[in-house]
Amino acid sequence: MLTTALDLAIGGIFLSSLYVLVAVGISLLYGVSQTINLAHGDFMIVGAYLAFMLITALGVVPTWTLIVVPILMGLLGLALYRAGGFSRILTRPISRGDREFTTMIMTFALAWVTSNLLAWIFTANVQAYPAPAGQLIIGDLVVPIRKLMTIVIAWPLIGVLGFMVKTTRIGLSIRCVFDDSEASKLMGIDVNRVHSIIFFLALLTAGLGGALFSMNFAFSPYLGTEFTILGIVVTIIGGIGSIKGALVGGLIVGLSESFVMFFISPLLKIAFIYTLFIAILLVRPVGLFRSM
């Protein structure tokens, strides 16, 4: 009984670490850059395919992909901001509502393009590669090393990110833009650079999430939607722009998913999380944590 509970808890924390990685990017993009990224889960899946390609085609050691893939994805984020039209939308003189509407449709289309491009290149079939083997055994509890790796890599990284936003000079400018983009521009902050950094970081974390995901699960092109939705739910539970909020929200969603799937039914996990999502939106629309 205790073993089952522990097993479920570890499973939940493991899932949380993936959700947090996705949610942090969504949260930063929305909070700081007013971009509701409906393609974020799909970017994560792109990360998974990148890792897959590096490992199967180039023979890279799986552990190395955890460094290479995030960096490549981060660069993709930069390209997306600079050349993908987002820098133009963010500087257009339109209302916040219009801007959110535009970015949302842009990223919705981007999600569609990304997933179908993946299906076109790699077929819609499920892919996988041999992950690092080995497991940790404590009494009756068996934990695969890859799960532990996911947890051990994801949480400290988010911690570092949070620390960076709280203490460094770049973090300060990020928080300023989050509070008031116009005023920070007037105060001499290079808003364009801040947005670039945000796009870089957001896709970097998504890429890492994807690389870790592909190490643990088989993947296919259309898995992104679910991660986008879960990531947004986590973001909204935690509060937009808040990294601490993403951590707590990720834990809530990951743990409840793990337990609901075990005790009730895997198919009802969405129903449970959806109810949670709507309830939070109605009761506390700003989320649990308000500021960055």
């Binding site: 509701i36 409906l38 679910e226 947004i232």
Partner: peptide, 22 residues
């Protein structure tokens, strides 16, 4: 519909997943 703006869009986006699973 008490949820406004982008949140409504996201909630409606997730509605497909919800109904399909249920």
């Amino acid at each position: 519909l008490r949820i406004r703006g982008p949140y409504f869009a996201i909630a409606s986006y997730a509605l497909v997943l919800l109904f399909a699973n249920v």
